[in-house]
Structure formats: C-alpha cells, structure tokens
C-alpha cells in the first residue's frame, strides 16, 4: 500500500481521450526529496501523467494528491504557484526580459521578488546578474532553458515538474544543465519528477526510474537495479540502448 508520508500521490489516476486511454489507473507515491524519472516511448502517457499534477490535464477518474490535498480541489492558479514547471518548448514570455520572466510567478501571486533574489536565481543556473535585462530573443537555447529553470524555482515550489526539459538542447549544454539541476535538487531539497525518453539521462540523474508503456507503469526501480537487469523486458530494452552504445564506444578505444 501507499506510504502516508508521500508528497505526491497518484490514486487510481486515469485519463482517456474519447476511446484512447492515455493513462490507465496509475497508483503511485513519490517521497519528499526524491528525484523520479518517468521514462517511456512517445505516446506512453508519461507527459499526461505529469501534467495531471499541475492540472494542465484533468484526470478522467482517480485523484492526484499534493501534500495530502486533492489537486482538483484547489483553484488551478493557486495550485500551480506551488509547483515549478519546466518543459521542452521553454515558453519564455518574449515581451519580458529575463528578470521579469523569472519573477513572473511571485509577481502574479502578489509578492514580487527583490533584485537580489533575481540575481541569486540567475546564479543558481550559472548565469551572472547581467543577464537580468536580456530579452529572450537575445539568448541561446541553453540560456533560455536556464532562465526557464530559474523561473520554475522562483516561487520556492514544493515540487519541480520537468517535461523533456533538455530535449531541444545540444548534448553538451544538455549534460551541463542536467548536472546543474541535479545539484539544485540536492542543495534546495527539491522533490523532482522529470519526464524523458532518454534512459541514459534518467539513469544518470534520477534515484528512482519509472518506465511507462501504454498508459501503465511497467517498471519502478532504482538505476542500480535496472542496470543489474531488473524491471522486466520493456525496461531492459530501453536500458540496452545506452549500455550498447557505451560498449561500442569502449570498443572503439580498445
């Protein structure tokens, strides 16, 4: 059964669009301070499951509890201000500079951030204070997503949701930003749920990996147990890809 101390709880949560089942009856607890990766192929339902937490998607049946509160019982704006959200297309507001983008959540909640806090948030994502006045069109993709992460953290969220956060970035930036987020997860004591289709990224960043297929969770393992062959056939097919790549690259240097 589920653990009473869970920060985030899915309770028979399901979502279907007309005849298509996107998420089928998922029950799941996520502990505070854990870094959970949701891995699966396109259409496996992983993004849908994630978006039911901040109600960008409403469940067809079942519940999602955040710190014990049924999320559908809260006004959506109030709920979302408790949750950091980072996603692949970033969605920086093009008419606002970096500082305004970062500070938007606290501002609309009625407690605008001080300049010092903006600078602090910029430094958290390895950007110096001079970026505060830059417009999104003046930034590279990686810099934009750093601002996106800073924006998600600006309101001291209870949970950080990330939907393919590094999917559009070049590999070097992607690696650096992944490490940075993992570091922030530790230092800030965050609870993080990250959706990705990249098993290597999941294995390297998360301390718990959930594998989704056809709307179901088919594996729920630590990276170590997945690498040791656990989690079943679908999970192992996914683990095999980076493992084979690593082996082939090792062969090239031999």
């Amino acid at each position: 059964m589920t653990d009473a101390s869970a920060l985030l709880r899915f309770d028979s949560t399901a979502k279907s669009y007309a005849a298509v089942v996107a998420v089928a009856n998922v029950s799941l607890d996520i502990d505070p301070r854990s870094f959970v990766a949701l891995v699966g192929a396109s259409g496996s339902g992983k993004s849908t499951l994630l978006k039911m937490v901040n109600r960008l998607v409403e469940p067809t049946s079942g519940r999602v509890l955040l710190a014990g509160d049924d999320v559908t019982g809260l006004p959506a704006p109030a709920l979302r201000r408790r949750i950091g959200y980072v996603f692949q297309s970033i969605g920086l507001f093009p008419h606002m500079n970096a500082a305004h983008n970062i500070g938007i959540g606290p501002r609309i909640a009625g407690s605008p951030l001080a300049d010092a806090r903006i600078t602090e948030l910029l430094e958290m994502v390895d950007l110096d204070g001079s970026y505060a006045t830059r417009m999104p069109s003046e930034l590279s993709g990686g810099q934009r997503q750093r601002i996106g992460v800073a924006r998600a953290l600006a309101g001291d969220p209870e949970v950080l949701l990330m939907d393919e956060p590094f999917g559009a970035l070049d590999p070097v930036t992607r690696d650096a930003l992944g490490d940075r987020v993992r570091g922030l997860h530790e230092t800030l004591g965050l609870t993080t749920v990250m959706v990705t289709h990249d098993m290597a990224e999941a294995l390297l960043l998360a301390d718990r990996v959930l594998v989704m297929d056809a709307g179901q969770i088919v594996a729920d393992e630590t990276p170590a147990s997945l690498l040791a062959g656990g989690g079943g056939e679908i999970a192992q097919t996914m683990v095999a890809v980076p493992r084979d790549q690593a082996a082939r690259m090792a062969g090239l240097t031999a």
Binding site: L56, A76, P77, L79, R80, F87, S89, G91, L92, F93
Partner: peptide, 21 residues
C-alpha cells in the same frame, strides 16, 4: 506560440492575468 501560453498557465496565471500580461 503554444509554449508561451502553456507557460502562462504553468506559472499560475489566472485567465485574466494571462489575457493582460
């Protein structure tokens, strides 16, 4: 851009704030 509108919802804007901001 759909991403910008999704972000507006994601950061917790009310419909009126989304329209105005």
């Amino acid at each position: 851009e759909p991403g910008v509108l999704e972000a507006a919802d994601g950061v917790g804007m009310t419909p009126a704030q989304k329209l105005r901001l």
